[in-house]
């Protein structure tokens, strides 16, 4: 089941300075399924936050269609079962951490008892219980981020929008937030994550989309993004320095004494390579697909300025 469906969505900001306005998001189409962690990546100004804001009804849609949990973003019902941690948030500083959770719970029309129970649980979860009665103006960036994450979960949301959730958080806090995200996913909830820390996205996300200049440059599973195009590394004791691979199978990328890299036309052709090596009585130690990090994949996509879904 899709929790988010976006079809040809476009956002143009009328600045009054530039004729025709500035296109922040340009004909983006994607869907996000229930229970997955979906990472939204892109360089600064790529349109990630604008896409978040359009889905949440914070900013209007210029053209195209968006649906969140079966409702258009203009309908407040679409936001009943969502939680949101904004980027560079500035929660009301006159409130305490507990006060923020209570205000948020009230705006979701939760019962007083539920708010109290959930607030205590969430403050414990984000390790902020002892600071619950302190005004937020005294909080550090990391503490604000933790309490922000707690307020986003007060209504036990079905879909959680997290915009840079680990921004300003120390490494221990980041690990804790990662654990919280995994726990939420294990509970069958959906997380839509916007983060610059690609190594973290790689660890937690199921699928990612890369936005560039407001357009969708690439979308796929983390495996699809990080698998180097059908390249395999074979570790063995190669006695022959020459090894010919027919064109219909693939091509040899590199060959050294203990390591060979081949690029195949499709995955099944690895069997041909293995069979050929075995016929030559070569002892194979390891066969593994060559992977790149999500960060490398991201840089490659952005550098090539690739447009359109691949």
């Amino acid at each position: 089941m899709n929790v988010v469906t976006v079809s040809d969505i476009t956002k143009v900001y009328n600045t009054g300075m530039q004729k025709g306005g500035i296109t922040a998001v340009d004909c983006v189409s994607l869907h996000i399924e229930s229970g997955e962690i979906f990472g939204l990546l892109g360089p600064n100004g790529a349109g990630k936050t604008t896409l978040f804001k359009m889905l949440l009804g914070i900013t209007g849609v210029t053209s195209g269609e968006a649906m969140l949990l079966g409702y258009p973003p203009s309908n407040p019902k679409s936001r009943e079962r969502i939680g949101y941690l904004p980027e560079n948030h500035r929660f009301p500083e006159h409130l305490t951490g507990l006060g923020l959770l209570q205000l948020t719970g009230n705006m979701y029309k939760l019962d007083k008892e539920i708010i109290e129970k959930r607030s205590a649980e969430l403050l414990e979860l984000v390790d902020m219980t002892k600071w619950a009665s302190t005004k937020m103006k005294k909080y550090s960036k990391g503490m604000l981020q933790r309490v922000g994450l707690a307020q986003a979960m007060i209504n036990d949301p079905e879909v959680l929008f997290l915009d840079e959730p680990t921004d300003g958080v120390d490494p221990i806090g980041r690990a804790e937030i990662k654990n919280v995200m995994q726990k939420i996913r294990d509970d069958g909830k959906t997380i839509i994550l916007n983060s610059h820390l690609l190594s973290e996205v790689e660890m937690v996300a199921d699928r990612v989309a890369i936005l560039q200049n407001g357009k969708l440059a690439k979308i796929g599973t983390v495996d699809e993004m990080t698998n180097k195009k059908l390249q395999y590394e074979i570790q063995a004791e190669f006695r022959e320095t020459l090894f010919d691979i027919p064109e219909e199978i693939g091509k040899l990328q590199s060959l050294s004494r203990g390591r060979m890299v081949v690029e195949l036309v499709d995955e099944s052709k690895i069997n041909w390579v293995i069979d050929s090596l075995r016929r030559k009585k070569i002892d194979i130690r390891v066969v593994k697909p060559i992977k790149i990090t999500l960060e490398q994949s991201f840089i490659e996509t952005v550098s090539s300025g690739k447009e359109g879904v691949s």
């Binding site: 009804g57 407040p76 009943e80 949101y84 500035r90 979701y108 929008f161």
Partner: peptide, 12 residues
């Protein structure tokens, strides 16, 4: 900026 998002993303 930053606080508006918090209020506007609520089901009101």
């Amino acid at each position: 900026k930053g606080r508006a998002d918090y209020f506007l993303a609520k089901p009101l």
